[in-house]
Design a binder for these strands. Sequence first.
DNA 1: TTTAGTTAATGTAAATAGTACACTAAGTTT
DNA 2: AAACTTAGTGTACTATTTACATTAACTAAA
Lengths: 229, 229
Amino acid sequence: MREVPANILESISIDCVIFGFDGQGLKILLIRRKYEPSEGAWALPGGFIKRDENLDDAAKRILKDLTGAHDIYMEQVHAFGAVNRYPLRRVITISYYALVKPEHFSLIAGADADRVDWFSVKEMPELPFDHHSILEYALQKLRYKVRSQPVGFELLPKKFSLTELQSLYEAILGEELDKRNFRKKILKMKLLVDLKEKQQSVAHRAATLYQFDSKNYAIMQEKGVVFDL
Amino acid sequence: MREVPANILESISIDCVIFGFDGQGLKILLIRRKYEPSEGAWALPGGFIKRDENLDDAAKRILKDLTGAHDIYMEQVHAFGAVNRYPLRRVITISYYALVKPEHFSLIAGADADRVDWFSVKEMPELPFDHHSILEYALQKLRYKVRSQPVGFELLPKKFSLTELQSLYEAILGEELDKRNFRKKILKMKLLVDLKEKQQSVAHRAATLYQFDSKNYAIMQEKGVVFDL
DNA sequence: TTTAGTTAATGTAAATAGTACACTAAGTTT
DNA sequence: AAACTTAGTGTACTATTTACATTAACTAAA
């Protein structure tokens, strides 16, 4: 445990819930805490806000300092402020979340972390403080969001099959989807470009590859088109 | 302007966006600020959090101290933390909102407010700091919510007509709804009890009165039934 | 070279939900 | 009795959702 520097706001922290999808299941990025309180525990990457820093900027900096992961677009989720949530003093934390592709980031433990790693959401270590609630809340939000917006294409390779896309959605939602209905819906959105290419060297019938149509997505967003999965 | 007491967290405030519906239009509860900064301006009721107070409790207390309105269930909306949003020092604010029936509350300006009043959302005074953004954000949330959940029954008299209910929804959404379709949908939800009673002494055909079926609502919520208006 | 194994790809019928739309009913007031 | 005001109602059309099973294409192993 160390002293609180003067240029930070000592009563407000940010915690980041970074979800990752690697083609298998849903993962979450944790750091191992180098200092008290809860030294040695795996926890959400979090830290304090500087006096001259906006919230979104603080979230980015904190994540980068602890894990090395940068250029991640995060969204604010919720403020958690139970009186005794943090043992040393009163701290209210604001949570942020993002969904990323693990292999895009080389992780480097820094600042108050001595290790960083991805954990499967299904097999999580015990988390300190109220980090479990924070995680659950963010997961709810992610699931909600993924149903109403075409989220997550950036998590797949540039060229992907519809089955891969479906697995992604199933991993996030934690439930199985009907193949034909999924395809119908996703193709009707006109957000995928059929590349007229096939998978190579797979031990079964090769799937057609698609690409996310980000141009059309931008246009539709401007028009205020609502998506729904 | 006064000193910051020691038992409060000086960098975190709460601002309350209290929407009211009085049968006519959507209103919002504002206070007139008694002290600098922005002394004399109409603003959202807001204040600082005490060290031994949870967020939700703080929101309730702050609202009560400034306006006299109590027993209002508020929900957290968003944290706003632009570096210069508050002129005196760095303050991050967490917004809360609620939707209530104005005539249920006797307003008493207190603490840092010398007046309290309801304003039509359509004719708002200039608000200080980033209160306008905070209000807009809460309004978005309210509109969103009212479409997906049976919100707002508590704003009407215990016995109400379908037309009154429809006016409420129209006021919140800021758009007109089709009478027949509205009735079809709302009745299909099985959330209203037909009281087999008629309005009294109205200068036209009397409408049937209904009551919100909170018992059935609780049951349906448990089952996870999704509503959609 | 045949067979087994694996995943890709496809369509339809039925049910449900959403939308647009106009007239009659029941009271009160003049 | 006529005029006014709001209540109350149904239908046809379209779009969306859901459940569901077979054939196609390719590889690997026998």
